[in-house]
Amino acid sequence: MEKYIFFTLSGLAIFSAIMVLVSKRPVHSVLYLILCFFTIAGHYIMLNAQFLAVVHIIVYAGAIMVLFLFTLMLLNLNLANELRKSILARVTAVIAGGLLLVTLVAVLKGLDASGPIMANTQIGMTTNIGKVLFNEYMFPFEAASVLFLAAMVGAVMMVKKE
């Protein structure tokens, strides 16, 4: 049962990820990206990380992608005024993508996939994540929150007229 769910989710995730790239209309790309996020949230649930799954949906699908969609709707990009990239830009993009692939392959090659990776299967529950986050990783967590606050204040300042 779990195997079938895993393969369905994975297939859907890869399909939607590819469709993000090949869709002609930007709004369709964004919607496929949202579908991709949902399949990844499904994977989190299968790993018993309910908190991560739900927060993933709230933050990415529920907030960030709404803003993406919002902007795209206002821009109203059409097929007609699509930007054509120059040859140099395309070649650079291919090389950069190829380098990323090489890095990924190198990382996966050194991976020992013989045994189960996760030692504690309950780490994904809300209570456990909270305990780890506010004990072991207290300082990085607070530092990140200060960083977010600074970014928010900066955004408000940029929007404000004079």
Binding site: V27, Q50, V54, I57, I58, A61
Partner: peptide, 25 residues
């Protein structure tokens, strides 16, 4: 019943905007 009921409600509420946005666009 899950351990993240209230967060689930948040998640669904934040999805509510898509139907209207997609239909309107």
């Amino acid at each position: 019943s899950s351990s993240v009921d209230i967060l689930y409600i948040f998640a669904v509420v934040s999805m509510g905007v898509y139907g209207i946005m997609i239909g309107g666009w």
